[in-house]
Design a protein around this nucleic acid. Structure first.
Length: 84
DNA sequence: CGTATGACGTGCA
DNA sequence: GTGCACGCCATAC
């Protein structure tokens, strides 16, 4: 199967250890396209992979950014994991 | 291929 | 610190 950029991004995010967070830009870089941070967010939003901790992906500013289940929930999870 | 969309990033007022 | 505009890339239609 051909691994699209989405697969790569999901794989990278899946490799984020607990209590750690990566910015969309970093994920895009690790995925192989430093300028695809836009696509990364798009993929995370449509992400159907439950094994991918997309909540650990935040903006480069350090802000939580967005979350399909609610930004408040995302912040709660990060705080719970000690990432925030 | 062209257009539209999006959980972004940077710059400037 | 806040708000707005532009650019950037991948995906869907």
């Amino acid at each position: 199967m051909k691994i699209s950029f989405s697969e790569r991004a999901l794989t990278v995010v899946a490799g984020i250890p607990r209590g750690k967070t990566l910015s969309y830009e970093q994920v895009a870089v690790l995925a192989g396209s430093p300028r695809a941070y836009r696509a990364v967010g798009n993929i995370m939003n449509k992400n159907e992979n439950p094994n991918v901790p997309c909540h650990r992906v935040i903006k480069s500013d350090g802000t939580v950014g967005g979350y399909a289940h609610g930004t408040a929930k995302k912040k709660a999870i990060l705080k719970r994991e000690g990432a925030l």
